[in-house]
Amino acid sequence: MADVTIDWDRCIHSGMCTTIAGNVFGMGPDARLVVLHPTVTGADLDSVHDAAACCPVDAIAIAVDVVAADG
């Protein structure tokens, strides 16, 4: 399990994260980019890691929940 955040001061709205991990990143009701599901598990975690590597400005932070990861 991990918590995902975007550093909005860095984000240049490339939309890459929505393309790669559309379950987690997407458009909010006001048509702005949002983290749809900040707490990520399972297969989504892999796609979130790929999205972070593809973010051109390194704006995606993934904080792995150590307790859950160990358990």
């Binding site: 240049i12 709205h13 490339s14 939309g15 929505t18 393309t19 458009m27 048509a31 702005r32 980019l33």
Partner: peptide
């Protein structure tokens, strides 16, 4: 126009 760009790119995909 970042938000419109992402919308257009998604539509294109």
């Amino acid at each position: 126009r970042s938000a419109a760009f992402v919308r257009a790119k998604t539509a294109m995909d």
